[in-house]
Simulated assay, not measured.
Amino acid sequence: MTQPSTPATGSANRNAPNVRFGRNARMYVALDDGSGQEPAFNTQNGTWAYFCATSQLEIGGQKGSETVNNFCTGGNDVDVNDGSETNTLTTGDATWAEDDSAITMLERAYETDARVWYRIYPLGLGDGKPVYRGLLEVKEWKLTIPSKGLIKMTNGLTPLGKPEKGTVDAQGVFTKTDFDAPATRPQSINGGALVDNVAVNLPALAANQEANYTLTSTAAGDLTVVTAGSSASRTVSIVDSTGAVKATGTDGATYAAAPAATYTVRVSGAQASTGGNVTADFATA
């Protein structure tokens, strides 16, 4: 009988599963200022607060379905996608402290009906590491105060839409992960160049189709690009010469303190849209 072979020295973990541990995970929250634009990621000035009190993080979504039973299915029940999706974000039990910045933000959001930005880093902070981000509403705020033990807080956090997955660079700038297969994307449209404070035509776009514009700033300053007149919301991204997304947003984006350079402005959307216009405000000599 053939005997099992002994792995060579140093190869014992060759077939080990690819696993990740959650102990390095981080969740940060920031109050929305009403603009709908994510604030620049900065943990030093109090804009973003580390939510360290929670014992567990859960984030995800579930697509809805409807059961169909007809002659085409041979009388069998078949579940089909009904186009709906339920997104969830839970933080497990959170220990309460009156001076915890993140807990104070969530309580303030509950009291004022403000929205909250969140970022969840499954593998911790670091250049190129994955991150999930999005907006949420605080639907519940509750303290559990036992006669013995720690005070706990429960938050009913309701994500507003699907969380975006991406990566961040060393400065915390977010780049969205593109899940679309290149072969299925409609051909990109060359929209030409953007001139400072001059509206340029935005053509009608199919779902997931992009219109690309060039923008040349000759002095350091804020770059702001907005769209108007479209029948559906447009995603606007400002991309530098290396391909890194420096700013992105719905119907507009701002890259603060941008160096003088030539950038690409991408305009796209998950839904088809009729045309409109694009206007950029940037520094010129």
Rank of each mutant, 00 (worst) to 15 (best):
P203M: 06
G92I: 06
P17G: 04
D180E: 04
A260I: 11
V245H: 02
P146Y: 10
A244G: 00
G166W: 02
A244Q: 06
E85L: 05
G166N: 01
V116M: 01
Q171M: 09
N45S: 13
V78Q: 02
T224C: 11
D100A: 07
T167Q: 13
G149M: 07
S84L: 09
P17Y: 12
A260E: 08
N42L: 05
A283D: 12
Q56F: 12
P39V: 07
T88Y: 15
V236D: 03
V168P: 01
G166Q: 05
D178A: 10
T86W: 08
D169G: 03
V131L: 10
G156I: 11
I238S: 00
N13I: 01
V226P: 02
D180Y: 04
V225K: 07
G60R: 11
T95Q: 12
R20C: 00
V278N: 06
G74M: 11
V29P: 03
V236M: 04
T86S: 15
K152I: 14
D127I: 03
T6G: 00
T254S: 06
N277G: 12
Q62R: 13
T90R: 14
T67C: 13
T264C: 08
K142Q: 15
K142L: 15
M153K: 11
V195E: 08
G156P: 03
I238G: 09
R115A: 10
S101M: 08
D93C: 08
M105F: 07
K246R: 15
T250C: 03
D178W: 04
Y121N: 12
T227L: 01
Y28I: 06
P186C: 07
T95L: 13
T216Y: 02
E58W: 10
A258C: 02
G252K: 09
I189C: 01
T284R: 12
P259S: 03
S217T: 11
L125R: 11
T6E: 04
T279F: 08
T167G: 10
T235M: 07
Y213N: 04
N18V: 14
Y118W: 13
V225E: 05
A220V: 15
T227G: 02
K162Y: 08
D240P: 05
G64Y: 11
M27L: 15
G192E: 06
V226A: 04
A283P: 09
I103T: 15
S55L: 13
Y121L: 12
N212D: 13
F41A: 08
T284S: 13
Y121D: 06
A193G: 00
N76C: 13
G36I: 01
G75F: 03
T177Y: 12
G243N: 00
I59D: 02
V173T: 13
R108D: 14
R23T: 12
R14P: 00
V131A: 13
R14N: 06
A270D: 11
T227H: 02
